[in-house]
Design a protein around this nucleic acid. Structure first.
Lengths: 300, 300
DNA sequence: AGCATCTAATACCTCAGCGGCATCGGCCGG
DNA sequence: CCGGCCGATGCCGCTGAGGTATTAGATGCT
């Protein structure tokens, strides 16, 4: 059977065109090398060397095989290196999710840029997904890590790394009467139209908000559920009702929406990097390590 | 050291994802295979298989390596086939020379077409060269075989294969007085202007012609030497003098040149396929064999 | 719970084959 | 004619690839 040994040996012989020198180069004895070449020719089913009275030369088949030898040996070496680099997490692909809020944070581009600089051969595939969908994708394995918001203190079987914090506040049109009130309370929302996040996308937040409203005895009217924060904001802007939005979701400047804290509603959430502990993608460890370092010591 | 054995074994294991089945496929015992894979991972410097409670799966590095394995094993096999086919003369390059006369013979395209059909992967490189230059090229190794004219009976250290025969005749303008004479003799050429082939290109023919003329006591005047048959014919047409041309070099129809045999000059030449006996190009043997078969039994 | 079964992993042994040493035989240059 | 260079061969030792028997862990069936 053809072994890479044969390729290495033939390469040396073909380059030196001399069994003694080739054997020396390979740290081998001349007879051992000679026999391997003989066996190689038998395997190939054709002579590769022309035996001449004074030394040897390549046959046409041998010359062609020499090229193939070089190519194959190079590929073997590259295969080894590639596997190593993948195992080291220096090469590969990382699927990263991020949601509306995380995407607007200044940390995100810092993390990604730092990672790209440190591991330029890891392809970063970014997926814009809401928090709940990210969790599903992480479970399903189509995502390696996600930047998302989780209510502080909520239990989880994922690994998490806290990057920042946020809270919810009341979003209301600039000209709404409540904007002139200090210390808005939940009871002030009675009989107001409310716009809530779609429970299909974000059940946790939806449930918590509803619970708080019920506990406060507020009989609010749900005017609309919306799929994402942008939609919610636009609906508020259009005067469809009031809503709860994250503080870090700053409305774009020419917007008629303002955010006001509620005196008796605090729902702190953490911006976290989340991943499955069982995920074996070696590049993931690098991402976590890098985000941890950056989050602990943000650049001056 | 990585051996192709390792590639073949890993390929089986990675495809079966089961040591027993893979070992069976390889006609190997499970422990032997297991140890080879362990050694392979040590060589690679990274695990390729994920050991799970129930069986094995590929690591990312292993999956990448699997692709490389397939690629490499395929290339190894192709290298073997390529070398074999080159050695068999089914693949390669053949440099073939032909001169003015051979090029005009109907046999040439027959030979070449038959060869191309039989050995489509042998690249035929055709070189238009006069006979003497072909001989030099054959000696120098830049030509594998040549179709050329040689005076019959001339000794040579080349291998030859007779394809056809030819002779020299007098070339003269259509309106020349000698065209009306039956049985032109060399002595009739006294005081005629003659156009001879350049002795640098075709020393043998030049010398023979000169010898015949001298022996016949003809004091011919050499008006010109010319590099090739076309030039000679044009000069004759232009009335610069008479010349000796091969019978099979039929002047193109709208030409004012005619060929007349000489009663006392016969210089038979053979159209031959000529090659060096020491030439090791395996495709050459096929060409010779094919030309021999075609020449002996020309198509009906 | 207990047993059968499937899997990867170990222990121990055998022998093929890879490699080393010594040597031969042919060819060339001095 | 002889010394040196080269490929080719014979013989022997030992490494390592492979076989058999067995263990160990997990799972599923009764």
């Amino acid at each position: 059977m053809l072994q890479t040994r044969h390729f290495r040996y033939f390469l040396a012989v073909a380059e030196e065109l001399n069994f003694h020198r080739a054997a020396e180069r390979l740290n081998l004895s001349q007879p051992a090398l000679w026999r391997q070449i003989r066996d190689l020719e038998a395997e190939m089913g054709t002579p590769l060397l022309e035996r001449e009275p004074r030394g040897i030369s390549l046959t046409r088949a041998g010359a062609a095989f020499l090229e193939d030898c070089r190519d194959i040996l190079e590929r073997v070496e590259n295969a080894r290196l590639r596997a190593r680099r993948i195992a080291q997490g220096e090469l590969g692909t990382l699927h990263i999710g991020f949601n509306e809020i995380a995407g607007r944070r200044p940390e995100m581009p810092r993390f990604l840029q730092a990672f790209r600089r440190a591991f330029p051969e890891v392809s970063l595939q970014l997926h814009f997904l809401m928090s709940q969908l990210q969790v599903d994708a992480l479970r399903g394995g189509s995502l390696d890590a996600g930047f998302l918001l989780r209510p502080r203190g909520e239990r989880t079987d994922f690994q998490t790394l806290r990057i920042g914090e946020d809270d919810y506040a009341l979003a209301l049109p600039r000209d709404h009467p409540l904007t002139r009130r200090e210390g808005i309370r939940l009871t002030d929302l009675s009989d107001q139209a409310l716009i809530l996040p779609n429970p299909r996308n974000n059940a946790v937040i939806y449930d918590r908000l509803m619970t708080r409203l019920r506990d406060a005895g507020v009989s609010a009217r749900i005017a609309q559920v919306a799929d994402n924060e942008n939609t919610i904001m636009n609906l508020v802007d259009a005067g469809m009702g009031l809503a709860f939005l994250n503080l870090s979701f700053r409305p774009p400047e020419p917007s008629g929406v303002v955010l006001r804290p509620l005196a008796d509603l605090t729902m702190p959430v953490d911006l976290e990097l989340v991943w499955r502990g069982a995920n074996t993608n070696p590049a993931l460890a690098h991402l976590v390590e890098l985000v941890r370092a950056q989050a602990e010591a943000p650049p001056a």
